[in-house]
């Protein structure tokens, strides 16, 4: 007998060592997420993937699947609260979708659409953040960083470098790079690094590629993020 959990009443099999997120994605169930990518060590920080496991809130991307768990995913309450958490991510940074070259390819924007976010709800923080355009090919717009650490993990785990880290505490958290000058141009980052392509928002961009695909023909212009996520991030994808 294989082990199973239920998500919103649907029975889903899992293997030992899988998280609730792994099991859900393998079964074609989408749980919203931003800091998670199946190929990297789960982080559990954005909290968008919060699900109710036997009545308790847990991050699906880090919480192990265990036989008989009763998981709630698409309840009205969870959807509403995930929208609020997404709104928090919008107000703490400076996110202006219409003027951002990532629009249409941005996971933060796509999750917001998916959760039917129509306003910021909270007061905007308008933080003073910089743009690092020093590198010839890769740039950082700190205004859009959501501290998911995907670039940190990708650089360390995939590229075998440690170009990025998240520094600071609390609301003063910020992305830093590995150079005495603090500038991207003095790091060993390359445009071919996984870390340069993993950003779910428009914080890390490859220069001169932003408008190669016109607005209107971009990833989330035609599909919702749940479809895209299940099609591209399935744990077995690429095997």
């Amino acid at each position: 007998m294989s082990k199973t959990i239920t998500i919103d009443g649907k029975t889903i099999p899992f293997e030992d060592g899988q998280t609730i997120m792994d099991a859900a994605m393998a079964a074609g169930v989408y749980i919203p997420h931003l800091c998670h990518q199946p190929e990297f060590t789960p982080h559990g920080s954005c909290k968008l993937c919060t699900v109710k496991v036997n009545g308790r809130n847990c991050s699906a991307c880090t919480y192990p699947a265990m036989d008989g768990q009763d998981v709630l995913n698409e309840t009205e309450e969870l959807i509403e609260d995930r929208k609020r958490i997404t709104q928090m991510l919008f107000v703490e940074g400076n996110h202006f979708c219409p003027s951002c070259e990532k629009t249409g390819n941005c996971q933060l924007q796509a999750v917001a659409y998916h959760l039917n976010m129509l306003d910021n709800h909270f007061p905007l923080f308008y933080p003073d953040r910089e743009v690092d355009a020093s590198h010839p090919e890769v740039m950082i717009d700190h205004n859009r960083c959501i501290f998911c650490t995907l670039c940190v993990r990708a650089s360390h785990e995939k590229d075998g470098k440690d170009v990025f880290a998240i520094s600071g505490r609390g609301i003063h958290k910020h992305l830093i790079v590995n150079a005495e000058s603090g500038l991207l141009k003095d790091t060993d980052v390359a445009a071919t690094d996984h870390a340069a392509h993993i950003c779910p928002t428009g914080a890390i961009l490859i220069k001169r590629t932003g408008y190669q695909v016109p607005i209107g023909q971009r990833i989330y212009d035609h599909q919702q993020i749940d479809q895209v996520s299940l099609a591209t991030e399935h744990p077995k994808h690429g095997e």
Binding site: S45, C46, L48, M88, E92, I146, F147, R169, G170, I171
Partner: peptide, 15 residues
């Protein structure tokens, strides 16, 4: 004192 790791506490305590 929020460490800033997760969104609800990092942004929420400031809100």
């Amino acid at each position: 004192e929020s460490c800033g790791f997760c969104t609800p506490c990092r942004v929420g305590t400031s809100l």
